[in-house]
């Protein structure tokens, strides 16, 4: 029975799967990992939400130009042979421990072959690799950009790139430094869940109620950065609320406005 299963598996892989572009994901979840192998051909119905999230997380493309030199060092190792491709590996390490490090493999055409994301303790959080085993030539990568361009950074090189109001009164803000990203969900009507910190789908998650408002941060930054960010956000909530009401992106101008406000109130 076991041999029959292995023969079947071998048949599946040899008959078609490896002739397509293959995608491999591995991401930390709680104390363990989840692994997903998928074909990049056509979507099939019946995917779990977990699979959809994994694919969404890998849909954002990488560009070395977006990595800010103020916050990261980049070490390039070229000449790595991989299935006949000349691959260059980039180790992108944060200068301080307040964000995650990345290892990226690009082929000669700039196509993304592999990405690995590690937290501050060098624990693998997310791995993604893609390779077309049956390709003759692969189309040039399309560089993804968010519809709303990043403005001036708001916090430690992280710029606010998106605001979205969710139906239940929660506000979703997204921030990026060009490499790592995180989302903040602001819920003005929290329940009594208290402080939560855990790993979900290769991301850190921290949820905390401060001054009657629940802040939930999800992304590729450590808990200490999340905690600090919540403190900054809550400390300037009036000014930030005013900026968001006008549809503006939050920038470091918040600090100036806050100082001005404090002067007025003195």
């Amino acid at each position: 029975m076991k041999h029959l299963f292995l023969a079947g598996l071998l048949f599946v892989f040899s008959s078609g799967v490896f002739a397509k572009e293959m995608i491999f994901y591995k991401y930390a979840e709680g104390d363990g990992y989840s692994v997903l192998v998928a074909s990049a051909d056509e979507a099939v119905p019946g995917l779990s939400a977990r699979d959809v999230i994994a694919r969404k997380m890998t849909a954002a493309s990488f560009s070395l130009e977006d990595v800010p030199s103020d916050y990261y060092s980049v070490k390039a190792t070229s000449g790595i042979a991989f299935y006949g491709e000349n691959v260059t590996q980039y180790e992108i390490t944060p200068l301080t421990g307040d964000r995650f490090s990345h290892v990226v493999w690009l082929d000669g055409g700039g196509n993304l072959i592999k990405t690995e994301i590690y937290d501050g303790a060098e624990k693998l959080m997310f791995a993604f690799s893609s390779f077309d085993f049956g390709r003759a030539s692969k189309p040039a990568p399309t560089k993804h950009k968010h519809a709303e361009s990043a403005g001036r950074p708001f916090f430690k090189g992280f710029a606010h790139i998106m605001t979205k109001r969710l139906p239940d009164g929660v506000t979703h803000l997204m921030f990026t430094d060009g490499l790592n990203r995180f989302s903040v969900f602001i819920n003005p009507h929290p329940d009594d869940s208290g402080t939560v910190s855990k790993i979900v789908y290769g991301n850190y998650l921290m949820s905390k109620v401060v001054s009657g408002v629940e802040y939930t941060v999800i992304g590729s930054v450590p808990y200490s950065t999340m905690e600090e960010f919540i403190k900054v956000l809550n400390g300037s909530r009036t000014e930030i609320g005013d900026m968001l009401k006008t549809g503006a992106l939050i920038t470091d101008e918040v600090y100036t406005k806050k100082t001005e406000m404090e002067e007025i109130l003195k």
């Binding site: 599946v12 979507a43 779990s48 849909a59 954002a60 969710l166 999800i218």
Partner: peptide, 17 residues
């Protein structure tokens, strides 16, 4: 929600094997 916005409008790959 985070994953949706992370991906933005890019990338429609897939098929779980």
């Amino acid at each position: 929600e985070h994953a949706e916005q992370y991906a933005g409008s890019g990338g429609a790959v897939a098929a779980s094997v």
